[in-house]
Design a protein around this nucleic acid. Structure first.
Length: 183
DNA sequence: GAGGCGATTGGCT
DNA sequence: GCCAATCGCCTCG
């Protein structure tokens, strides 16, 4: 598997999104394997960066490999990784591996197939908030690791958008039971 | 300075 | 399947 270093993220968001499937992500020791992502590129009408830098999306124009965390619908955090300037990958779902007890307690449920199945759920399970906006994924509390296997990848249209719905920029592990929605 | 809306979720019909 | 919750950001006047 390709090493997950700074150069890994300094690429177009769709390539990073595809290659992140099967990569392990931990926050303060809890997390698991990434099974679902979405790419948001700079010329993308659905991307926060589409109209240029603003206070909220400033991180998207900063260094690759940093976290872009924003509040959605006034109550859910969404976790992205910055790629090329103005682009990012939304982490939508994880297969729980480590710190499962902690994640179950934070979510208030025990069903592991729904623990991290969706961007808002994932952030709640891993305790990701706006406090981590701009933080590097190569520094604590983050940890990236190689799961050591290359899963079969599926792609399809992104979820929850009103524009650019036709582009197949959602990626996921084929047949995973931990997806927010099946492909 | 005010109004509208969103990369969602969980609960109720 | 539908709808409310809830607030920061963006657009417009």
């Amino acid at each position: 598997m390709r090493p997950v270093d700074a150069a890994f993220f300094e690429r177009p968001a769709d390539a990073v999104a595809r290659d992140l499937i099967g990569v392990g992500l931990l926050v303060n020791g809890s997390g698991g394997g990434i099974v679902e992502t979405e790419a948001y590129h700079g010329a993308d009408p659905a991307s926060h960066s589409f109209r240029g830098p603003t206070k909220r999306n400033a991180v998207m124009f900063g260094p690759a490999g940093c976290a872009y965390v924003y509040l959605s619908y006034g109550l859910h955090w969404c976790f992205n990784v910055v790629c090329e300037p103005g682009s990012a990958v939304l982490i939508r779902a994880l297969e729980p591996v480590a710190g499962i007890d902690e994640m179950q307690a934070r979510r208030g449920i025990t069903d592991t197939s729904k623990l991290c199945a969706g961007p808002g759920r994932l952030c709640k399970a891993l305790a990701i908030t706006g406090a981590l906006n701009g933080a590097s994924l190569f520094d604590t509390p983050f940890e990236l690791y190689d799961l050591g296997h290359a899963p079969a990848i599926r792609s399809g249209p992104r979820i929850g958008l009103s524009v650019a719905v036709e582009e197949a920029l959602r990626f996921g592990e084929a047949g995973s039971q931990y997806l927010s929605k099946p492909f």
